[in-house]
Write a protein that binds this DNA or RNA. Structure first.
Lengths: 130, 130
DNA sequence: TATAGTGTTATAGTTATATAGAACACAGAA
DNA sequence: TTCTGTGTTCTATATAACTATAACACTATA
């Protein structure tokens, strides 16, 4: 059928990690990959780009990529087959009405002049006391 | 009058840092202190507990405390006087209606079953694309 | 079988993070 | 002045995070 059989290989766009953010590189890699799955831009069956390609996309070492993907494997989000590749295994996508609601919330917050960092601090704080 | 003259020394409650969270201890300390100021539980003029007391409250070394407070000094949130103490200098408190709105948002999100980690991932993602 | 594309493991070295412990410096009150 | 409470600096050590590099193992295809 299309070009690869059952599941195409989509080409997710990943950004280089920020090495001065204080957040470990492997965590940033995890977060970016997981976000793609949560937003449904990667779905179960999809294959990730090869680790050596991820290496250059994220601008980190293979070992850092592996550490990140390993964690996502233990979470059940990904699986890997030696000699073949990494695949999305779990459907953790969020429904789009919820995404829309998030968007509206973010717009409001930006309107009152809060920055991202402060917003996240507050959400964490409120979350624990709700 | 009260007990210290102009500005009492309030006793903020800080929690021990989570040493397995992957977030550097000094960042966790920064976040907790800054949150108190943002929520207006510490206001300009207030004095922080002595660093050696913070050491035990957060369960980290003095040097880690100093690193965190140094950062907040460069942000202008705190200042320090040798031999005296650390003081809140900047009013970055958020108005309570905004806090309330955050609370409502968090309640909604919890209702649909998202966890904190996922929520923050999504907010970061949406934030950059709004 | 041979080859290319993939994941996996291992070693060594560097830097960032965090700790422990000690000493020093300043402010304020006795 | 002396003492206590405070912030500050320093050195040494340990661990985690990250990198570079190389080698190895499996899969699929020619």
């Amino acid at each position: 059928m299309d070009d690869k059989g059952n599941n195409e290989r989509r080409r997710p766009k990943f950004k280089k990690v920020d090495k001065h953010s204080g957040i470990p590189a492997y965590v940033q890699v995890m977060n970016q990959v997981k976000t793609e799955v949560i937003l449904g831009r990667l779905v179960p069956g999809d294959q990730l780009p090869p680790v050596r390609e991820l290496e250059t996309m994220f601008d980190v070492n293979v070992n850092t990529i592996l550490k990140a993907l390993d964690k996502l494997k233990s979470e059940g989000v990904l699986s890997s087959e030696q000699g073949v590749g990494y695949f999305v295994t779990s459907n953790i996508a969020i429904e789009s009405p919820i995404i829309d609601e998030l968007g509206e919330f973010v717009r409001k917050i930006k309107n009152v002049g809060l920055d991202l960092y402060t917003t996240i601090l507050l959400i964490e704080e409120v979350w624990k006391n709700e």
